[in-house]
Design a protein around this nucleic acid. Sequence first.
RNA 1: CGGAGUGUAGCGCAGUCUGGUAGCGCACCUGGUUUGGGACCAGGGGGUCGAAGGUUCGAGUCCUUUCACUCCGACCA
Length: 568
Amino acid sequence: MRFSRILIPTTKETPNDATLASHIYLIRGGFIQSVGGSGLYNFLPLGKKVLDKVRAIVKDELDKAGCQEVSLSFVTPAALWQESGRFEKYGKELLRFKDRKNNDFILGPTHEEMMVNLVRQTVKSYKQLPLNLYQINLKFRDEIRPRFGLMRGREFLMKDGYSFHSSVEDMKREFDLMEETYKKIFTRLGLKFRVVEADSGAIGGSGSKEFMVLADSGEDTIVVCDNCEYAANVEAAVRKEKVCEAEAPEAVFAKFHTPDTKTIEALSKFFHVDPYYLVKTVAKKALYDEGKSEVVLFALRGSDELQIVKACNAVNANDLVDITEDELANAGLIAGYMGPTVVPEGLKVVFDTNLKDASSMICGANEEDHHLIGNSFVGVEADYHDLVAVQEGDLCSCCGEPMRYTKGIEAGHIFQLGTQYSEPLGANFLDENGKAQPMVMGTYGIGVSRLLAAIIEQNHDDKGCIWTKESAPFDLQIIISNIKDEDQVALGEKLYALMLEKGVDVLLDERKDRFGAKMKDYELLGVPHAVVIGKKLSDGLVEFVTRDGMVKQETSVDAIENILLKRF
RNA sequence: CGGAGUGUAGCGCAGUCUGGUAGCGCACCUGGUUUGGGACCAGGGGGUCGAAGGUUCGAGUCCUUUCACUCCGACCA
């Protein structure tokens, strides 16, 4: 390609809402264009090119693993989503609208329903299984607050795959195969990533893993162990049970007057007791389908923090929201003095598993200015769930070593779904005995457009993008410094023709710009290598540039051909 | 949804307080000079000042309503 012919609107100025490197450089480099704000982007030629390359790698590896590509209709009849029960559950992110006949439709944020519908109409026998179908298509999620450019847009390109099996074992085999396939994809893209244990979120299902591209700007917190392989999203992370070295406050059960002692910290000081022996009681409002809600108390040790996603899952709610003072009072609770043992009739209480069989605990009395001491939960029947947010320094449940936090960009997510969709949607097959069974499913996603952002988050400097080999918009850029210099032009054209002939994807910068402007653009675009034909051509010298680190290697005109032929 | 802010040329902004010819930088077009780090000179094109209503001889500017977007928070495969 000739630079003068391709639309690459680079800019010197940064859009004022861009804070992330990927957002800034993708826009400044003319890869993408914002569409009136609001999380929508156009892909310009260069951006489209990179997107296609990433997409091709995803497709290549999936096809090698035996997956088959399809394309589902983007607009989905709401009836399908009502069948699965997600029309209500998915919330406001789901864009719903009506057609001229007043029928409900949605724009697909993910396509379990559509794919199950496709399969249930066509697959009837165990002989047709297993099957792994995917598509790489636009998705739409009406994000509350789109930001960070391609990282969190409302419309985005996603690969979503769905597998169908006659048994759980076979689904697990496919799940492992997809994990390996995803690793190959991310490795080919040149990304540093980590596979982590994850929460299953709105899609539901059991075992799920996320593929996290490691970057400080990542929106997800992941807990990793440097000693072993354990890594998990903080939403799902577990730890080795904490022990407390401080002495337990032995006491007989009693009510204690504790004025103005509303926080764990204050309570700890008041009784001179380690927070480990205090019960933290957190009240939240749980939201369910059809606008139903209830107040729920979550009880855990004072030394722990509540993990909101775990808490939400524990009560099987769609959402947990903060509760107002008024709502607390209406529920018969007293802020600062809540406890899990004496609660108003009918109020749901969930205990953290760390409280199981705990003794010598102090908790609120649900009475102004009073706490209860000497509580024992030994043998107490209750609703126990893991509710704890793992903190940095907590010990690894696998090897016992301290763990730490790091940040990641969620670029892939694989789920073991089971029969969660096939059952309600009636996706059944006949087994060897002629008996109808629901198909066992897995689902696998990759945020393809998000990957562009992730690649740049991990590979950039203060000048612009540094694309990895397999993601780069071009393999090589040939820069003619001064197009009025006929020798420079002649050599540039010659090398350009040579590379084209070899099938190298090469960009020839033959614009009538000055040297500085062309170099700035080169750095912004981030093509891995460049040949700079400039002033020293009169001495028979040109430069071979490596974008990563901007390493310049001066070389003779005679040698450059060989360098190029050898490298590409 | 809560808090704060902004809407003026493709992008970034000034002008609004104190009403009176629509401005600046970047980008773009023409001509010339320039060519190793986003050049310079001269000339030029481009606007329903977010929308609607009101006050006024006159509104980008004042009043009312409304819409959109951004930032922080909440939220988020």
